[in-house]
Design a protein around this nucleic acid. Structure first.
Lengths: 111, 111
DNA sequence: ACGAGATACCTCGCCTGTCAAGGTATTTTA
DNA sequence: TAAAATACCTTGACAGGCGAGGTATCTCGT
């Protein structure tokens, strides 16, 4: 986890939505996927993760149900809603914009 | 100001340092430069701006002095320190990394 | 001469997202 | 059968952003 979380603040929800775009999944696994995708450089803290799930569900962007199939402890699965899909698309677009802005703001043209 | 500030949270200090890399400047002007660079899409709120200056100065990344030359009210100028330059270079590098991570996390490979 | 508006700085208190710490329950494995 | 892994959840503290409000100076039109 070499990335300071504060620079990713505000993107947590989008990251989770993106994972759920690939299909229903449960918290632990989602977080493992995130860690894999970033070669272990980034992962959500559990408190952050579950806070985000709660927030997203209350906002109607995801829905949850209990699944008890697999090994290990019981799992709460999450599914992205239509509204969630819409939000993801928007956030993705916004990210493109933010990225361009920060590129312009953080770099200094050579003197 | 169409960009939600939370997606830029954590980058405020770096943005300010980048502006000061171009030379000494004062708060109001720095913020105007930022707005210009982003075609008015982004600007720091004053409270955010001055909070950041305080934080940066206390951290030894910038230094300030009063200048009374120009028109309008008195101005407090800021100069980036050696430590500030170092920090900017680090943050810039970290941004490259963060950008790559978010690209990987927010986009979903097609099914 | 003077009031409006621009310039410029600053503080207080609220809100929100992150996370360390602590807790519960189940299953696998040595 | 105890340890470790899996999996979920809550509480309280903390930090950064910012709305709202405030101060002081200068310019410009009338």
């Amino acid at each position: 986890m070499s990335i300071s979380a504060d620079t990713l603040r505000g993107h947590t929800d989008t990251i989770i939505l993106a994972q759920l775009m690939r299909g229903d999944n449960y918290g632990y696994e989602i977080n493992k996927n995130i860690q894999q995708l970033t070669q272990g450089e980034y992962g959500l803290k559990e408190a952050t993760l579950y806070t985000a799930f709660k927030r997203l569900e209350q906002g109607g962007l995801i829905a949850s149900y209990w699944g008890d199939d697999g090994p290990g402890a019981r799992r709460r699965y999450y599914a992205i809603t239509d509204e969630g899909r819409k939000r993801w698309a928007e956030s993705r677009q916004e990210w493109e914009n933010t990225r361009a802005l920060l590129d312009a703001l953080i770099n200094v043209e050579e003197v």
